[in-house]
Each structure stands twice: as structure tokens, then as C-alpha cells.
């Protein structure tokens, strides 16, 4: 009989102990952020989708079209294409497409890049109404970012390079799937 009442009393007491905790935290400062009005700072290490690194002084990219990122990607979401301007020795990036719908953000491409030409963007507020919204043209994004930085973008620049005139040399045009020369 005593045990019965003690159980009831102890049970009620345990509820009061819990309520005390609730009461204490009800008066404590809020721990959440009221999102659209306040925003948290994104950590500099955040891994968003990839972007081409902009040189803020010259407006150039660092890509050498070696295709390492395209090969490192386990999902095949990167398409890189390059072209040799007339008279130049190295290829120039002309097209860099990222299919973000397939990307799983593993970071293999950034690690594979020998010239650190790609970086993670810090964009997390990504929403779209169609899947085509996530097929990014990184060259176009590069140009936009250059303009916001106030530099003239010098990407996919195919103007012929002035070299010593070598008569009758055919211009070579390489496709994305061919191996880089040199």
C-alpha cells in the first residue's frame, strides 16, 4: 500500500523535475536563428558546387585543360573542352560544364586538379524549378564573377597568338576526349 502511494508520488515528482528543466530553458535565450531575417556565416571550408578560380588581378583562369577533374569524377558530371588558339602551344579552356544534379560533392575533382584551378563555392541557397537549372556553365559563371570583382574576364580567349611566322602550319583543334599534348 505504501509502495503504491510512493510510486505515485515519485512519478509525479519526476514530472516536476522535468518541468523545471523545461521552465529553465523556456526563459533561456533562444538558440535558433530566425533564418530569412538572420543568416549564419558560412564556414570558409564549406563544400558547395565547384567554380573556376578567378585571378582577381588579371581576370584569368588557371585551367590547363588536362582533364584530370573529368577523369576523377565518379559520377561523370564534369565536361571540359579546350582549344588551341592559332599559334599557341597550350590549350585554352573553352567549355566547362558541371551537371550538378549528379554531383555528390566528394571533392575528388578539386583534389585531382594539378593547378588548383577549381574551388568550392559557398552557395547553399540553391533551388530551382527545373533540373536544367543545375546544369552549370562554369565559364559563363566565371565571366559573371569577374564582372562583380571589377576585372575584365580573360577566359576562352582564342585570339591568335603572335608568334614567329611558320608557313603552312595547320591549326590543331583538339576535342575534349583526346589526350592533352605536352
Amino acid at each position: 500500500m505504501i509502495r503504491y502511494f510512493r510510486e505515485i508520488f515519485e512519478g509525479l515528482w519526476s514530472l516536476l523535475v522535468g518541468l523545471k528543466v523545461t521552465g529553465r530553458f523556456a526563459l533561456a535565450p533562444t538558440v535558433t536563428t530566425h533564418y530569412p531575417f538572420d543568416e549564419l556565416e558560412v564556414t570558409p571550408n564549406y563544400r558547395g558546387h565547384i567554380d573556376l578560380v578567378v585571378n582577381p588581378k588579371t581576370g584569368k583562369d588557371k585551367c590547363i585543360v588536362c582533364m584530370m577533374c573529368q577523369r576523377a569524377c565518379p559520377s561523370g558530371c564534369i565536361t571540359v573542352k579546350g582549344q588551341k588558339p592559332e599559334g599557341a602551344k597550350k590549350r585554352v579552356l573553352t567549355e566547362y560544364r558541371l551537371d550538378f544534379t549528379k554531383c555528390s560533392l566528394c571533392g575528388n575533382c578539386v583534389e585531382a586538379c594539378p593547378t588548383s584551378a577549381i574551388e568550392f563555392s559557398h552557395e547553399y541557397n540553391i533551388a530551382g524549378t527545373s533540373r536544367h537549372d543545375f546544369h552549370y556553365d562554369l565559364v559563363e559563371r566565371f565571366r559573371d564573377r569577374c564582372r562583380t570583382l571589377g576585372v575584365e574576364p580573360k577566359i576562352a580567349d582564342l585570339t591568335p597568338v603572335a608568334t614567329k611566322p611558320k608557313p603552312e602550319r595547320e591549326k590543331t583543334e583538339s576535342q575534349g576526349d583526346r589526350k592533352p599534348d605536352g
Binding site: Y46, R47, L105, G107, E111
Partner: peptide, 28 residues
């Protein structure tokens, strides 16, 4: 849990699917 996720996000770059460990070490 949010504290932990913030810490891990700071070092790995992601909050849930970390892909942090690499053969031979860690990536950051």
C-alpha cells in the same frame, strides 16, 4: 547535435555526407 555538425562542417566542409577520409590520411 548542431554544435557537432557545425564543428564537423568547419573541418570537412559538409554537415552529413562528409567524404573526409582519404586513403593515406584525411583531406584537410
Amino acid at each position: 547535435r548542431e554544435y557537432i555538425l557545425d564543428l564537423l562542417e568547419h573541418v570537412t566542409g559538409a554537415r552529413l555526407t562528409f567524404s573526409y577520409f582519404r586513403v593515406g590520411g584525411v583531406n584537410r
